[in-house]
Design a protein around this nucleic acid. Structure first.
Length: 860
DNA sequence: GCAAGGTC
């Protein structure tokens, strides 16, 4: 039996189809697909199925000095047990093994890991390696006809990276975490890729903080061409012209740096009746279609449609798994020879959405696709496959991304566009004698639409400037002066960050967006575009001082050089790793005496990230804290001497804003909760507002209101008055939320939710069923007729169980987990209760059987 | 529990 091993299940299935002529059958073993035909079996791994780690005795952070990790042994441990064991079973019976992992360095290493697993159980079987850069009939059959050997040197290059990353990352992460006593989930991490990325963000923030804005002025005039009776065309619309002058280097400059000059130019423009055309410059420019999508450019394009890097990749992943587009993780920007653009366009011909554009393209004489600078061997650039979905097959987001991918492919085979640029320079007489003031207008017109016809994502707006002749007099109809300030550099957006990382050579196509997510998870950045926290600034500062290499792109650059040397047989894995170890020893030598200093710096910054402002009852500061049950509140830094607290809303994660409350000097708080994100404001103001609001009784409590005493009974006193039951009232809580609750709280905790925002009007109409008033919420233009609060709550619950979004209400289930669960078919708490724990745990990554059982217990 | 790299 021949055993074929690929990097992933998807590749295994397609290769099996190609080699078997679609006759291969899938069989599930141990939860792993094995494709079977004739004397062949094909199994897909899941990337690395083993990983490097330290032996178990190094697990306790407190028992092991971080510096010991530098020379600790490194083991390979199975990380995907079921795949490893299935592979072993098959390998025992194999008389030929073929490694068909991806054609890149990491693929070679994954291949070597498979090689070792096979050798563990079968030291005889011949193992060969096949390489192909796209999974097509031609390439795959070709590769299997010309098998090769595994490249152990190339794999060793990958192993060097693994070891060096582990040693540096683990040792420094533990050092920083221990020195600042951050040992739980809030450890402080450092790494070859994440730290230089963080430094990019921190450096930019430093520039912004240090920025000193400067005033300048810009001047504009509106010009009007006199209607020309002769040419019959209506050129009489106004157009804008901007004042410019020649600076010291004789370049055109628009910004005027002193107010007096600006005012005098403005006066001249304002009083001028006409401007004379001095120069007319007309040129046509070719606008070439874009290169095929690699991951980075795909993320960038998706981000201009409003998708975060993470969202774009996750949707792309789904479209890839469904078979509608090629592998989304690629650096390649050159289509392989195997891709026949005409054939692919043909599949879109006749399509409701894309047919017309595809047909137009098919009519072109020449379908030569564009090419980017990067050509790799692992995967083709991202493009649609011949399996075309209908709009109904996809969600709205998926369709939008799919359309982007289809249209990008169209664009790469489309024609160039042509623009006409028209530059008109005019002159206005200066008020005082001397030089005239010059104005310029830049017009542009799209002469030939070209690829823009099929790829509408780029801006093609035109700027109108009429046809004028040199010497022509134009009417000046308006003049404007704008006072402006130079702006600080802008923060990196996620896609700009990913582009910059790519340029710096850090991270990979598959990990760059994950690295950014990691920075969010670690509490290093907040909001979008990402903004560094104080902690991030302290970590970068500490690293710059003691371990400069780990926050610099140099570390990757040097590592890449070493890896190339290893791959070419010019260097040795152990030699390279040991050199890196020595360097790290030196870092720890420098750090030894600064442990406390570094720890203090980190702790201070951690606290600064949580600071709201002065405590009203002591000399300490108020901080945002987390209670044992995970909820957030405001507490005093002087605790336990000062026990002052304020509540915070119970939805979302608090983000402290720069804005400060005038009255209490406390910073405002925003609650981050996905779509439900809102600004809470000053927690003390919110608490005071709530205290000032009287409870408004609207009816009888349905839980404990039976024995309500009548007014007469109360007046009479005695036993009947004691038997008083509860009433329902509209209550305002200190944490900003409102509810309809029982007046006997906390003895009776009956309550109904109310919206957080808007004025609540209690009407005279009453619900017949519950004898409660109908409520109306006034928020914005349209009043919201909430109705009886009990009926409203019932409807709300019914909607929730229908849409199934109640999962997140269970403690411990966040939005990401809920998403994963819903992918596995568990969409509501009801689903969860009846779910089979073993099956779900094996299907949903990161969700163990134990966690599931815990949630089930809570759900009951 | 640490990294970064595969994959999902």
């Amino acid at each position: 039996m021949e055993l074929i091993i690929t990097e992933k299940d998807n590749a295994a299935r397609r290769i099996a189809d190609i080699l078997s002529g679609e006759s291969a059958e899938a069989e599930r073993k141990n939860g792993v697909n094995v494709y079977k035909w004739g004397g062949r079996r094909c199994i897909g791994l899941s990337g690395h199925v083993v990983g490097v780690d330290f032996p178990d005795e190094y697990n306790d952070w407190r028992d092991v000095e971080p510096v010991e990790l530098i020379d600790a042994p490194i083991e390979k441990k199975a990380t995907k047990e079921n795949i490893v064991s299935t592979l072993r079973i098959l390998a025992r019976k194999a008389d030929q093994v073929t490694i068909a992992t991806d054609y890149d360095r990491e693929g070679e290493l994954i291949g070597k890991e498979a090689w070792e697993l096979v050798r563990d159980v079968n030291d005889e079987v011949p193992i060969r390696r096949v390489r192909f850069s796209s999974i097509t009939q031609n390439e795959v059959t070709n590769a299997f006809e010309n098998p090769d050997e595994l490249d152990f040197d190339l794999a060793a290059a990958g192993e060097a990276r693994q070891e060096i990353d582990l040693i540096w990352g683990a040792a420094l992460t533990r050092f920083l975490s221990l020195s600042s006593r951050q040992l739980g989930d809030d450890f402080i991490s450092v790494g070859r890729v994440q730290s230089p990325t963080l430094k990019l963000i921190v450096d930019r923030e430093r520039e912004i903080e240090a920025f000193d804005p400067e005033d300048y002025w810009e001047l504009f005039a509106d010009l009007l061409k006199a209607p020309d009776a002769n040419d019959g065309e209506d050129d009489s619309a106004e157009f804008e012209a901007q004042y410019f002058y020649r600076d010291e280097d004789d370049n055109e400059a628009e910004r005027v740096w002193d107010e007096e000059t600006a005012e005098s130019v403005f006066e001249a423009l304002e009083t001028a009746a006409s401007a004379t055309v001095e120069r007319v410059n007309r040129r046509t420019r070719t606008d070439d279609p874009p290169a095929p999508f690699n991951t980075t450019q795909f993320i960038r394009a998706a981000s201009s449609l409003g998708y975060s890097a993470q969202q774009a990749m996750s949707i792309a992943e789904d479209l890839y798994t469904a078979g509608y587009m090629t592998y989304p993780r690629t650096d390649n920007t050159v289509y392989p020879d195997d891709l026949d653009p005409e054939e692919l366009l043909d599949t879109f011909s006749g399509n409701y959405h894309f047919g017309d554009d595809a047909d137009d393209l098919l009519e072109l004489d020449d379908l030569e696709p564009t090419e980017g600078d990067e050509e790799t061997t692992d995967h083709p650039p991202i493009h649609p496959t011949e399996d075309v979905p209908t709009k109904g097959d996809l969600s709205d987001d998926e369709w939008e991304i799919y359309e982007l991918v289809v249209r990008r492919f169209f664009a790469t085979v489309a024609e160039s566009a042509t623009w006409e640029h028209l530059k008109v320079v005019t002159a206005v007489e200066a008020a005082a004698a001397g030089d005239d003031h010059t104005l310029k207008s830049n017009g542009k017109r799209l002469l030939k639409e070209g690829y823009h016809a099929v790829y509408p994502y780029f801006n093609t707006s035109e700027n109108y400037v009429p046809d004028v002749a040199e010497g022509e007099e134009l009417e000046v109809t308006d003049a404007r002066i704008e006072d402006k300030q130079t702006q600080p550099p802008r923060r990196y957006g996620q896609s700009r960050l990913i582009e910059t990382m790519e340029k710096m050579g850090i991270g990979t196509k598959a990990t760059r967006h994950e690295t950014i997510e990691k920075l969010y998870d670690r509490g290093y950045v907040e909001s979008d575009p990402p903004r560094p926290t104080q902690l991030a600034e302290a970590v970068v500062e500490a690293a710059e001082k003691f371990a400069e290499l780990v926050v610099s792109e140099e570390m990757t650059a040097e590592l890449e050089e070493d890896m190339t040397a290893i791959a070419e047989g010019e260097a040795d894995l152990s030699e390279v790793a040991d050199e890196s170890r020595e360097y790290l020893e030196q870092v720890f030598e420098d750090l030894r005496d600064s442990r406390e200093e570094v720890g203090d710096l980190l702790q201070k910054s951690l606290k600064a990230d949580k600071k709201l402002g002065p405590c009203p009852e002591s000399d300490h500061e108020l901080l945002v804290r987390q209670s044992r049950n995970g909820s957030y509140f405001v507490g005093c830094d002087g605790y336990p001497d000062c026990e002052y607290t304020l509540p915070l809303p119970n939805t979302g994660k608090p983000l402290i804003l720069d804005e400060e409350c005038d009255e209490h000097g406390l910073r405002h708080v925003k609650m981050l909760a996905g779509r439900q994100t809102f600004v809470h404001g000053c927690p003390l103001c919110k608490a005071e507002e709530a205290d000032e609001q009287e409870d408004e009784v609207i009816g009888v409590c349905p839980e404990c209101g039976e024995g309500v005493a009548t007014e007469e009974q109360r007046d009479e006193g005695g036993e009947a008055a004691e038997a008083e039951g509860g009433e329902l009232a509209i209550k305002h809580l200190q944490n900003g939320s409102r509810l309809v609750g029982c007046t006997r709280y906390p003895d009776c905790d009956y309550s109904l939710p109310l919206p957080r925002r808007g004025d609540i009007e209690v009407t005279d109409e009453r619900c017949e069923e519950h004898d409660l008033p109908e409520l109306i919420v006034h928020n914005g233009d349209e009043p919201w007729e909430l109705g009886c609060p009990i009926c409203n709550y019932r409807e709300f619950q019914a909607r929730e169980s229908e849409s199934g979004s109640d999962l997140e209400s269970l403690d411990g289930i966040g939005s990401k987990t809920a998403e994963k669960l819903s992918d596995a078919g568990i969409e509501s708490i009801e689903d969860l209760k009846s779910a089979e724990v073993e099956t779900v745990a094996s299907e949903v990554q990161g969700v163990s059987e134990d966690r599931l059982r815990g949630w089930q217990a809570k759900a009951d």
